[in-house]
Amino acid sequence: KQVQVGDEKYTFDTPEEARKFAEKVAKEKNLKVTEKNGNFHVE
């Protein structure tokens, strides 16, 4: 599963790991997490 933050992409083995990372980054940057096709976008 992938997490996209701006132009950066991070790959994780499980959706749970990806979601945790996305939520942590979103909180730090005051952004929101959206899920698209099983991948997460922080925007």
Score class of each variant (00 low, 15 high):
12 F>D: 00
9 K>G: 05
28 E>I: 09
34 T>Y: 14
7 D>K: 12
35 E>T: 10
11 T>S: 10
3 V>S: 01
15 P>I: 14
9 K>S: 12
17 E>A: 10
22 A>W: 05
22 A>F: 04
38 G>T: 02
6 G>D: 06
13 D>Q: 10
14 T>E: 06
5 V>K: 02
12 F>H: 00
43 E>D: 11
28 E>R: 07
37 N>Q: 06
19 R>M: 06
39 N>F: 10
21 F>S: 00
40 F>A: 04
31 L>I: 05
35 E>Q: 10
30 N>F: 07
13 D>Y: 06
6 G>H: 06
14 T>A: 04
25 V>R: 05
19 R>L: 08
14 T>G: 05
1 K>G: 13
9 K>V: 15
10 Y>E: 00
29 K>R: 13
40 F>P: 04
29 K>I: 05
15 P>Y: 15
24 K>Y: 09
14 T>R: 05
9 K>I: 15
29 K>H: 14
42 V>I: 09
11 T>W: 15
41 H>Q: 10
2 Q>I: 15
18 A>T: 01
43 E>N: 09
30 N>P: 02
22 A>Y: 04
30 N>A: 07
13 D>G: 10
1 K>C: 15
25 V>W: 08
31 L>W: 14
23 E>R: 05
36 K>M: 11
14 T>P: 01
2 Q>M: 14
1 K>S: 15
30 N>M: 07
43 E>C: 13
43 E>I: 13
20 K>D: 10
41 H>F: 15
30 N>H: 10
35 E>F: 14
17 E>T: 04
1 K>D: 03
34 T>C: 10
33 V>L: 09
42 V>T: 04
8 E>M: 14
34 T>W: 11
40 F>V: 04
22 A>D: 00
29 K>N: 13
43 E>P: 05
24 K>V: 06
32 K>H: 11
21 F>D: 00
29 K>G: 11
18 A>W: 02
15 P>V: 15
4 Q>Y: 15
20 K>A: 14
23 E>L: 09
11 T>R: 08
18 A>Y: 01
40 F>W: 12
16 E>R: 05
18 A>F: 01
32 K>V: 13
36 K>L: 12
8 E>G: 05
36 K>A: 08
12 F>Y: 02
6 G>W: 06
2 Q>A: 10
1 K>N: 14
42 V>E: 02
33 V>N: 03
36 K>C: 14
8 E>S: 11
27 K>N: 10
28 E>W: 07
27 K>L: 12
18 A>R: 01
7 D>T: 13
15 P>R: 14
10 Y>Q: 02
40 F>M: 05
34 T>V: 14
43 E>R: 09
12 F>N: 00
39 N>W: 14
18 A>S: 01
32 K>F: 11
1 K>R: 14
32 K>R: 11
25 V>H: 05
21 F>I: 00
22 A>P: 00
26 A>R: 01
17 E>P: 00
21 F>A: 00
23 E>Y: 14
10 Y>K: 02
24 K>R: 11
36 K>E: 09
42 V>K: 03
26 A>F: 03
9 K>C: 15
12 F>R: 00
38 G>M: 04
23 E>I: 09
26 A>Q: 02
1 K>L: 13
40 F>T: 03
22 A>K: 02
16 E>K: 05
11 T>H: 11
24 K>C: 13
42 V>A: 04
33 V>T: 03
41 H>N: 07
9 K>Y: 13
12 F>A: 01
5 V>M: 06
24 K>D: 08
31 L>Q: 08
6 G>M: 07
30 N>E: 07
43 E>S: 12
12 F>P: 00
13 D>T: 10
39 N>L: 11
38 G>R: 02
